[in-house]
Amino acid sequence: MLTSQHTWIPYLYLYGVGGLFFLLGMIIIRKSGSIDLRRKSHRMWNRVLIFGFFWFMVIHAILIYAALNW
């Protein structure tokens, strides 16, 4: 019998704790001026970084759903 410890808890932990690290990274590079959103190429990179986070989040969600329901 599968429990939430095998299905969604790891997912929530991964994107909860991992998400905190990611958010911290985004804040630090913005605050430090390392990524400068006035520059066109940096705006593109900002979008790529956010896309990457949700890209993996969606892939994992689909895979868990598929394992449980398909």
């Binding site: 991964l14 991992g18 998400g19 690290f21 990611f22 990274g25 985004m26 630090i28 590079i29 390392s34 990524i35 990179w45 970084l49 990457g52 986070f53 890209w55 993996f56 892939i59 994992h60």
Partner: peptide
């Protein structure tokens, strides 16, 4: 293979 993105902002811009 799919848990590396969290630290990518630190890497690319740090």
């Amino acid at each position: 293979y799919m848990n590396d993105w969290f630290f990518v902002p630190f890497f690319l811009f740090g």
